[in-house]
Design a protein around this nucleic acid. Structure first.
Lengths: 176, 176
DNA sequence: GGTTTTAAGTTGCAACTGGAAACTTAAATA
DNA sequence: TATTTAAGTTTCCAGTTGCAACTTAAAACC
């Protein structure tokens, strides 16, 4: 039993889809390598909403069984989900977010907020709130080390070496 | 000339790929509808780095010409990029980020930071910095309305109606 | 104990999407 | 006018997706 998954992996390995940008020392291509597939974020969203079992993902997402199987395996391989047999019912498998998976929440909420603002147009329901005071969370934004909110015009790229040599240079080129 | 793009659109329309989640009033599926394709974020990254012309995207990304053409068209359709003929050289077309596109920067940086932390393992080069003081930006995080940083355990979903009726209830269920 | 049900995953097949390379179109330049 | 450049299109083939039916193993039922 179960050699088809191996075949699928072999097939992937034999002419492995070229990494999105293997030269760049940039986290974005690496993040997309793990999360760039069509269903990955939707599976993650379901996981954040407490979905843990194969059949429940299936129903929540309306995804094909084989694709779900493949995506869950990849997310487990990537260390974003962990796969565990249920103690009381050994047929059941629980997929749970790892710390690495939980750490994707800011990125996911930023995307969600963008979609709400620019595509949905109205506040989505339900609203993500702070459980301590019940208030909606703030918009995810880029902030400086001292907490000021930054816009694209306030940002610049600096070389690591330059940054270490001269922490606060006089003039910096703007990115945009 | 130029009927192939129309054909492509017709082909799309005839059995249009079903939206990722058309029922949910959620921004995430909508965001993924616009940005979920394999190359979309990499194109956006290049655009944020000042790439504006077809051939330059081609070289920067190592993407196939037809796929780039198709993705740029979709990003323009989605209102994330705008397409403009250069004034001085009418062959050249400039793709520039719109405000809607610029607003994806927090999501992109959150993904990049995640990739750096969990996949790259070391700080990527170059570093995104505040141009006012040259310091690296803070980690993108989820903050409450009053600025406290929140973890997944601090978060809860609330219904819009409930939120309006009772802004600060006594007990709230945690999401995770 | 034997049958049925449930959970998870696999297979085969048809349709669709992606990528490489050659081709087209139109504008600029020599 | 001939050539080059920028952007985009077409062709063709390989790879991926999705559906439906099938398999496997454990639990529940009778």
């Amino acid at each position: 039993m179960g050699y088809a998954q191996d075949d699928m992996e072999k097939a992937n390995a034999s002419h492995m889809r070229e990494p999105l940008c293997d030269i760049a020392q940039c986290g974005l291509p690496l993040a997309l390598e793990a999360m760039g597939e069509r269903w990955s974020f939707m599976i993650l969203r379901a996981a954040f909403n407490g979905v843990r079992h194969f059949e429940d993902f299936l129903e929540a997402l309306g995804i094909a069984r084989n694709i779900l199987s493949n995506r869950l395996s990849r997310l487990v391989e990537a260390g974003i989900l962990k796969r565990e047999h249920c103690a009381n019912d050994r047929r059941r498998i629980e997929y749970r977010l790892t710390p690495k998976g939980l750490d994707l929440l800011p990125a996911m909420l930023a995307l969600r907020q963008w979609g709400e603002k620019w595509e949905l147009g109205v506040p989505a329901n339900p609203v993500m709130c702070d459980s301590r005071d019940g208030q909606p969370i703030a918009t995810i934004s880029i902030v400086a080390h001292d907490g000021r909110v930054l816009t694209p015009a306030d940002l610049t790229w600096r070389e690591l070496s330059e940054l270490q040599a001269d922490p606060a240079p006089a003039a910096l080129r703007k990115v945009l």
